[in-house]
């Protein structure tokens, strides 16, 4: 009944196995040491800080308005005002003003979100709530890195 075919072809060994066979529990002992890059922390680090190296930010933090973006996003993230982010009007205005100079980098296709929209941020770590379209653009392939957000 077992269909496990085992061929030797010179130095190359080939095993064919059925679904049932491969679904049996594995008794291999592999030290699954996880690389921090295999499971990236995402946009918000465990300690609550912002991970500026998150590939999910794309070119936001490195682009021509990187500093303005950081200021605005940090202000919002650490804001204790009620409603959250209401004290960040200035920094968001600065950011938007900067972005308006670079229509190619920051396409104004979507309505520029008001700071209120950022409320969603606290709910979802990996989404800036429509502030920018977050995507990992350093990857060409699904698996190519770490950066797949889980």
């Amino acid at each position: 009944m077992s269909y496990c075919k085992d061929y030797h072809y010179g130095k190359d060994q080939v095993i064919f196995a059925t679904k049932d066979q491969l679904n049996e529990p594995s008794n291999a002992i592999i030290n699954m040491e996880e690389d921090e890059e295999d499971h990236p922390p995402g946009l918000i680090l465990p300690n609550g800080d912002i991970n500026w190296e998150c590939p999910c930010l794309g070119g936001m933090a490195s682009g021509p308005c990187g500093i303005e973006f950081r200021n605005a996003f940090s202000c919002f993230h650490y804001s204790k005002a009620e409603p959250k982010g209401s004290d960040c009007y200035e920094s968001f205005l600065t950011m938007q003003e900067c972005m308006s100079h670079f229509p190619e980098v920051y396409p104004p296709a979507k309505e520029r979100p008001e700071s209120d929209d950022l409320k969603q941020l606290t709910g979802d770590n990996n989404d800036l709530g429509g502030l920018v379209e977050l995507e990992d653009d350093s990857n060409l392939k699904r698996d190519s890195q770490s950066s797949s957000t889980e």
Binding site: C4, A17, A28, I30, N31, E34, D35, D38
Partner: peptide
Amino acid sequence: QVLRDGARNEDLYEVAKL
């Protein structure tokens, strides 16, 4: 992770199950 471990002395058929 398998590469990092090296899977020495392991039955690779079992490793493949992972």
